[in-house]
Design a protein around this nucleic acid. Structure first.
Lengths: 108, 108
DNA sequence: ACCTTTTATCGTTAAATTACGATAAAGAGA
DNA sequence: TCTCTTTATCGTAATTTAACGATAAAAGGT
C-alpha cells in the first residue's frame, strides 16, 4: 500500500516516528547539522553545502519545515532558515526517552 | 528517482540517516519501546502488541535487524528479539551529538 | 512420520519518496 | 519598468515503502 497505518498507535509514537522519518535522509541530517552549528541564520547557501540540485534541497527544506524542525523567515529576496527551537527540544526529549528506558541486563 | 544519493555525504551522515529512517515508522518505534522496557527477551507476541498483520510485523522486524538496532536469537520454534546493545548506544550517541551542538542564541 | 506452532518469505498493489530540469513567483536594484 | 537573484513549485520518472494474504520453512511434540 505505501500508506502508514495510524490507528492503534499512540500519539507519541506517531509523533516521534514523524520526526525520525524527517531525520531519515543524509541531506536532511546535513542541513540540520549545518543549521545547528551556524552562527547566525543561514539562507540558501545550504544548497552550496549539499551535492544536490536547488530544487531537491528546497524539497528537503520543505519537509523539515512541515514536520516543524526548522522555520524560515523571509529576508529580502532570500529566506533565512533556522532550527525551530521549541520542537528541537521536543524531539530531543522524545528521543531521549526512547533511548533512556533500556536496561541492558535484560537482554539476551 | 526514488534513490537516495550517497556521494557527497559523510559516513556519519549516511549512518545516522539510516538509523533515523529505521525509526521513522510508528510500528518500529512501538517495537523498540516494547523491547527496551521488557524484562527478558520477547518473541512474536510483538505481533499481538501491534495493530498490524504478522507478515507486516515480520517485515518491520527485518528492517530493524538489517539496520542493526535489534537482533534475533532462535529459541525453540520461536525467535527471541532484543535490542542490539552496541548499536543502540551508537545511535544514542550519534543522535546526542546532533542535538547537542545547537546554541539557541544564534537563531532568528 | 505427522501435526501444530511460530516465523519468514513471496507475490502483489497502492502510495510515497527522491531526484532533476524547467518554470513561476517574489523582491531588490538599475 | 526591466532585470537579476533567490527560492518555491510543477511535471515527471524510477525506486522504495507499507500493507496484506498466502505459502513455505523450521522446530517441537505426539
Amino acid at each position: 500500500m505505501g500508506l502508514t497505518k495510524t490507528v492503534g498507535f499512540t500519539k507519541t509514537q506517531l509523533e516521534l516516528a514523524a520526526f525520525a522519518k524527517a531525520l531519515g535522509h543524509p541531506a536532511r541530517i546535513a542541513i540540520l547539522q549545518f543549521l545547528s552549528t551556524q552562527k547566525g541564520c543561514v539562507c540558501g547557501d545550504i544548497v552550496n553545502e549539499l551535492p544536490l540540485s536547488q530544487s531537491t534541497v528546497s524539497q528537503h527544506l520543505k519537509e523539515l519545515k512541515n514536520v516543524g524542525l526548522i522555520k524560515g523567515d523571509v529576508e529580502g529576496p532570500s529566506i533565512c532558515y533556522c532550527i525551530h527551537e521549541k520542537n528541537w527540544e521536543k524531539v530531543k526529549n522524545s528521543l531521549g526517552d526512547l533511548f533512556r528506558n533500556f536496561d541492558p541486563n535484560y537482554c539476551c
